[in-house]
């Protein structure tokens, strides 16, 4: 028996390659979904797909998730549409252009706002609602890139690392209310975000990562690396002393 039944779920960033596959798994079991995304055409396409695949109901809201206030609009709508959601998945994010972020303050701000600030902000009312309900699951897609800063993408890494710390604290707080907080840390996943990268054997499919996410949400896990192997890769990476690490071309 799963700890959390995922019958009514809110997905922020629902048009993401990974979230689309999570949506499909939930839809095929007849879930009711509330989808938030910024592009109306993509959102409609995803919603129609999930309806055809068996979702009992699909509601949508268009929102710019780089804004730290958009949830004021869509979170009450989600509650009105679903009644009592069983969980929330936060999936939106941008990889950004690491090269540009080195010099361009506005791009650095954009990455941190989209990936970290907006998530922390929306989770203020969302966490409070779940705390009062005293059950449910909140899952956020972080990244293995948040486990250690590297010269090649430290702004993105910092946004995900910030989420990691934020979610640790939130998990600690909500544990006492019976609410689970799941940090998802994927490695390389074959989605639009990585379309420009050559596909090495380290790449996982969005389908397999999605099924890992659904399993982790059902079980109310704490931190999950997807696929599992990344846990060991990062363990080794994190053991390298900083005095050595700073010399590496990473």
């Amino acid at each position: 028996m799963p700890k959390h039944k995922l019958e009514r779920i809110v997905i922020a960033g629902a048009t993401s390659g990974i979230a689309r596959e999570v949506g499909r798994l939930l839809a095929s079991r007849g879930a009711r979904l509330f989808l938030v995304a910024r592009d109306p055409a993509k959102l409609d396409a995803v919603a129609a797909d999930l309806r055809a695949r068996g979702a009992e109901g699909v509601h949508t809201a268009v929102a710019d998730l780089a804004s730290t206030t958009s949830h004021e609009q869509w979170w009450p709508e989600a509650l009105a549409a679903l009644g009592e959601p069983d969980g929330v998945l936060v999936a939106h994010g941008i990889l950004g252009d690491a090269e540009r972020a080195r010099r361009d303050a506005s791009h650095t701000t954009e990455i941190l706002t989209t990936n970290f600030l907006s998530v922390a902000a929306m989770l203020a009312p969302i966490s409070t609602w779940f705390e009062q309900r005293r059950s449910g699951v909140i899952a956020v897609i972080g990244s293995v890139a948040g486990d250690r800063g590297r010269q090649s993408n430290y702004v993105y890494g910092a946004s995900k690392g910030g989420l990691d710390i934020f979610l640790q604290g939130l998990r600690n707080r909500l544990f006492h209310a019976g609410v689970d907080v799941v940090t998802i840390k994927p490695g390389f996943v074959d989605t639009p975000m990585t379309a420009h990268l050559p596909k090495t054997p380290l790449f996982a499919s969005a389908e397999s990562v999605a099924s890992g996410i659904v399993g982790a949400m059902e079980a109310g896990r704490d931190v999950v690396y997807l696929p599992f192997i990344w846990r060991w890769i990062l363990l080794v990476l994190k053991m390298i002393p900083e005095a050595v690490f700073k010399r590496l071309k990473t």
């Binding site: 390659g17 396409a45 995803v46 129609a48 797909d49 309806r51 055809a52 695949r53």
Partner: peptide
């Protein structure tokens, strides 16, 4: 292969657009 969304399925008539 990633253009793989259903657009409409009419379960009453069997008409499918994808």
């Amino acid at each position: 292969w990633r253009l793989n969304r259903f657009i409409e399925f009419e379960a009453a008539t069997g008409r499918l657009r994808a």
